[in-house]
Amino acid sequence: MTGALIDLSFAAFSLVAIVAGVRVFRTDSMVRAAFYLLASFAAAGGIIVLLGAEFLGMVLILMMAGEMLVMAIVMVMYMMNPAGLNPMVMVHQPRTAVVAGVVAFLAIAGVGLSGEVPSRPAPNPAAATADLGRELLGNSMLVFQTAGVTLLATMVGAIAVAAPRGRYGDAAEGSEEPGLQPDEEASA
């Protein structure tokens, strides 16, 4: 791809990533929020592909598709609004959050822009995927295995925590609707 085309795609992806990212928390439906998050992630994956990490970007996009679907399903499973299409606002401490978000952005962007980054681009960008494969199953095999074992432990742990008949009793007990008053416990 030529430079202008890359710049154009980068601008488009950045715009989608940021606008969709903001919309995640500005929309009134949770399923919509999940779709916006997916759009933001897909755009970020596009930027990663543009940066030359083709495999990583595509895997990120692939992974997020499944994750978003699980998210949308979990949301409507436990939230008080089954189809996720009715408007709702569920926010606390919005001002503090905005300030914290802006401060985080300014701090990181400031560091990024003021710091001196050495310029050592890859000599052969096309080989990035093959290099990663050799590294994964060569020198970094231990990292790869550790990630695998971590995921296995996560699976076991997640199932143990969420299992229908565990230390927290029977699953059927949880099938009651949540109350519409959010602060029952607090007021008691």
Partner: peptide, 13 residues
């Protein structure tokens, strides 16, 4: 693309 397999998998996902 070098990662055609992943692109196809992402399309299916």
């Amino acid at each position: 693309p070098d990662t055609g397999f992943v692109v196809y998998s992402a399309a299916v996902a």
